[in-house]
Amino acid sequence: MKRLNWRGAVSIAAFILLWTLLARLKAPGFAEIPDPAEVSRAFWSKYLPSAAYWRSWAVSFERVGYGFILSQLLGIPLGLLLGTRRLFHEIVFPVVELLRPIPPLAWVPLSILFWPTAELSIVFITFIGPFFIIVINVHDAVRGIRKEHLWLARSLGASPVRIFRRIILPSVVPAIAVGMTLGIAVAWNVVIAAEMIASDAGLGRLTWEGYVSHTGTTVIIGMISIGLAGYLSTLIVTYVEKRMMPWQR
């Protein structure tokens, strides 16, 4: 059993108390901000039973899911190619380095111009962030493989194909795990902002609509939902990562 961190519990209680006080006293800046009790009342009565609210969850999760999974499916092989193929690296890597510093949100206008539907452009933007992260992580990991690990395989008579499968791939798994952890966080960041700018659905949109309609409870429920959604996807990614690295158990 893990020991309960009572100090943590006390500080969370203090935070909620302070928030309640500031909201009730209408402290400067808190004019439109509801207190925690109002938020939870609104949540239980209006949002929990609302199909539209849960659709926002589904829409955002779907976008993050597509963008993230696509970024891994394309980014991991690209990183491996860049790390192992010298000629390919010389030709393609400069382009990667040229595009990589552009923040994903800077792609929004171009993406809307390019893709036929808003949905596609949001998935694309959600894809861009984790994509460059995983490419660079895998690329660096391939280049950082200890040469003794490769030499040993050669001395035991392994073919290039076997070296790739048994030595190079498992060597980059930890870097893939790091890239995925960073990538899923970036995917959520990006999808929320993109939804606020360019969508009529999703948790980002829900939060933004709360602001537009001066509904403080919606804004805060939106924020908490986004935090929770990010946390849940991190749990999934961490689970997958553990399965990828049985030797680290």
Partner: peptide
């Protein structure tokens, strides 16, 4: 080639 083998200073066992 497999007719020679080297054991390295630092372990080169594949930890995975």
């Amino acid at each position: 080639g497999p007719d020679r083998i080297m054991v390295f200073q630092e372990t080169a066992l594949w930890h995975w």
